[in-house]
Amino acid sequence: MNLSGLSFFRSLRSDPKSHASNKLFAVIGLGRFGRAVCSTLHQLGYEVMAVDNDEKLVAQVLTERIAAHALQLDSTEISALKEAGIFEFDTVIVAIGNYLEESIITTLNLKEGGVPHLVAKASSETHEKLLKKVGADHVVFPEHETGCALARSLTKPSILDRFDLDPENSIVEILVPEEFDGKTITELKLRSRYGLNLLAVSQDRKFEINPDPNRRLYKGSAMVVIGTNKDINRLPI
């Protein structure tokens, strides 16, 4: 179900100015994370401006056709950002995580230029604090989130995917436990027994939302549930 990216894209929706009706995004920094953001937004139908100081990375984005436009410029120069029209975008993602000075100056430039919604990638807690000091509306830690997901997959291999709603509640996609094999959704009584709500079931990666209560679940298929982490951990997984 690929829930792992939802926390990042939720940050893009959390400000009214970045609502789906505004389909203009700029991504500054075209490393692995930046290209992934460009590609996903482009596939979702949003118009994306890709920006980097490295000519090769800009050319790569154009070759892969994962952005509507791509420019080579120095984002630490406020005049370059203004001339490129970056200040006119509703949402800008600063995907420069490994170059602290460049990341901070770019974020400051964008806020001074009037960008209403700014998401920035951080590589440490200190980096996060600095980004927020200069005006970042949201700060993300993609490497941290990936590391957490890996640890969970190693310790709970039956959990295929997970999206943390907050520190206490999550949506998880899990393999149907052997204890549930052959039973109907009604028979499982997930809400009364575990305090969980079933959102979907899947077979061969094809999902059925709000499945029929009389549907039987079988080992090897998957189900998506929502609830507290405490209740999710009580499942026989």
Rank of each mutant, 00 (worst) to 15 (best):
E173C: 09
V51M: 09
E128M: 05
I232E: 01
V94A: 04
L160N: 11
P177E: 00
N2G: 08
K156W: 08
E187K: 11
S202A: 15
M49H: 09
V115E: 09
V140F: 00
H127K: 06
A136P: 01
D231M: 07
E128H: 05
K230F: 11
L160C: 08
I66T: 00
K111Q: 06
F141G: 00
L108K: 11
T106A: 14
F25R: 11
T91Q: 04
A68C: 09
G227F: 02
G29L: 03
V224K: 10
K132A: 00
N53Y: 15
F9D: 07
G29H: 05
A122I: 04
E101M: 14
T63D: 13
S158Q: 08
I174A: 04
V224L: 13
L199C: 10
R152Q: 05
Q203N: 12
F25K: 06
I66S: 00
K219C: 06
G85C: 05
N53K: 15
E101V: 13
I185Y: 03
G29I: 01
V224Y: 05
P157H: 01
I237C: 02
A67W: 01
L131E: 02
K183N: 06
N109T: 09
D166C: 06
E178I: 02
C38Y: 01
L196A: 05
D90C: 09
R205H: 15
L217V: 06
E112W: 14
P177G: 00
T106I: 10
L131P: 00
A200I: 11
G34T: 01
L130Q: 03
L81Y: 02
D15L: 10
V61F: 03
K189W: 07
Q72S: 14
A59I: 05
V115G: 07
E143S: 04
I209R: 13
G5E: 07
R32T: 12
A68S: 14
L150V: 13
K82F: 10
G31L: 04
A70V: 02
P116C: 07
R205P: 05
P116S: 13
P236D: 00
E88G: 06
K133S: 06
F141A: 00
L130P: 02
Y218W: 12
L217P: 01
D15I: 08
L188K: 03
R193M: 10
D15S: 13
I171R: 07
S18M: 07
R65V: 03
R191A: 09
S153A: 12
S39K: 14
E77A: 12
Q203M: 11
S14A: 13
S18T: 08
F180E: 01
V61R: 03
L150F: 12
Y194W: 08
G5Y: 08
K56V: 11
P16D: 10
I226L: 09
E55L: 12
R215V: 09
E88Q: 13
I104V: 15
E125W: 14
E101W: 13
Y99L: 15
A222F: 08
R10M: 12
L154C: 02
S158K: 05
Q72R: 14
L71H: 04
D52W: 10
S4T: 11
E47H: 12
H127N: 06
H69F: 13
K132M: 04
R162Q: 14
D181W: 02
L150Y: 07
E178N: 04
L62M: 15
L130R: 03
I159M: 07
T126Q: 15
P116M: 08
K23T: 11
G220Y: 02
A95P: 03
